[in-house]
Design a protein around this nucleic acid. Sequence first.
DNA 1: TTTGTTCCTGACCATTTGGTCAAACCAATT
DNA 2: AATTGGTTTGACCAAATGGTCAGGAACAAA
Lengths: 197, 197
Amino acid sequence: MNESTITEEKILQAARLEFERKGYNGTRMQVIADVAGISKASLHYHFRSKDNLFQRIFDDALNAYIPLVNTWKDDSLNWEEKVNRFTTDLLEFVQKGTMLFIIREINRNPELLSERLKKSKSPNSFILYFEQLNTDNQIRQTDPRLLYIFLQSICCFPAINNQMFKKVLRLTDKQYHEMMEGYARAAATFIINAIKK
Amino acid sequence: MNESTITEEKILQAARLEFERKGYNGTRMQVIADVAGISKASLHYHFRSKDNLFQRIFDDALNAYIPLVNTWKDDSLNWEEKVNRFTTDLLEFVQKGTMLFIIREINRNPELLSERLKKSKSPNSFILYFEQLNTDNQIRQTDPRLLYIFLQSICCFPAINNQMFKKVLRLTDKQYHEMMEGYARAAATFIINAIKK
DNA sequence: TTTGTTCCTGACCATTTGGTCAAACCAATT
DNA sequence: AATTGGTTTGACCAAATGGTCAGGAACAAA
C-alpha cells in the first residue's frame, strides 16, 4: 500500500464518519480534513470536490446494502430458517448506522437511487420465493411484497429510531442494548408466527 | 386575525415545508422568506433566528406525534380492534411525511428529545395494556416492548423508506400508492396473527 | 396635522465554506 | 548532485448565508 492509498483510506474513513453522522449538508470539508489529519488542500487534491467524495461514500454504503436486501440465498434451509438468517444478517448491517444515512440522503436527492438501480433484471428473489410458498400453500396467504416490507421495517426501524424508543419505553442505553441482543431472533419468531399456518 | 398573525402563519407554513423537506442544515432562511412571500428581514422580525423558528416547527411536529404513540385509548373495543385503530391512526399521521423529519433532527441533535420528554410519568399505556393481556393469557406470550417496536416499525418505516421500496419492488408511484391503501388493515392483521393464540 | 406604533424592506455586514494555486517537500531515478 | 513526479500545505478567493439596521409605509390615536 503506497503513501497515496494510505491517505485516501484515512480520508474515506473520516468522510464516512462525518457524512453518516451529519449528512451531506451538515458535513464540512475542513472537519473531514481535520479528522483525517491532513490539510483541506490535500483533501481536495485526492477527491476533487465535496460532491465527488460524497458520491464515493454513498456508493459504498449502497453497495453494502443492496445485495443484502435483494438476494434470498437458495440453499437447503427451510423457509423458517431462512427468515431467521435474513433478519440476523439485516440486523447486523443495520446496527452499523448506515441505514439512516442512506434514507436521509435518498430523501434529500432521490436521483441518487435512480442513477444506481436501473440495471437489476428479474424481480426480487425474496418475492419469487414467497410467491412459491403461497402457491404451494405452505404459509398463510400473504402478499409477498407486504411481507417484504414488514420484515424490512421490523429490522431497520429500531436502529433508526432508537433514541425515540429509548425515551418512550423509558429504557437506559444498557437496557435497550440488552433488549436488542435477542432482537433478531424475536423478530424472526414474530414474523414466522404471523404467516405460519 | 390581525396582520401580524397572518404573516406568521405564512412563515410557519413555509418553514414547515422547508425544514421537513431539507432538514435544518439544508434549509435557507432566504428560501423560507421567498416561499412565504416576504423579505428575509421581515422573517427575522417575526422569528428572531433560524434556531428559534426551527424549535417552533420541531415542537409542533413532536406535539402531534407523541400523544399518538404514547396513548392507548381505554374504550370498549377488544384488543384486536384496538390494534386496528392504532395502526390506522399511526399510518395516517406518518403519511404526512413528518416522521423522517423528526427522526433526522433527533439524530442530528439528541438534545431535542431529552429537553421535551422528561415530564411523562407512568409507563406507556400501550405497554401496560399488553402486559395485562399477557398475564391474562389472552395472547401468545410476547414482550410488550418488542411488540410496541414491531408495530411502530411496520407503520412508520414504509413512509420513510418508500423510495427504496418502490425501486426494489419495482413499483410505480401509482402501484405503490395502491398497495398503501390497504396497508393499515394488512399490517394490523399481520400483527394480530403473530400474537393470536 | 402630528405623533406613535406596528410591520416591512433594501442595503449592508461578518462569518463560514467549498475550492484554488503557487510554492515547498520528498522519495526515487539519472 | 540534479532532475523529476507525485504529494502536501498555507494563503487566498468568491460565493453563500444568518443576521442587523436605519428608514419607510400604513394606520390609528391624540
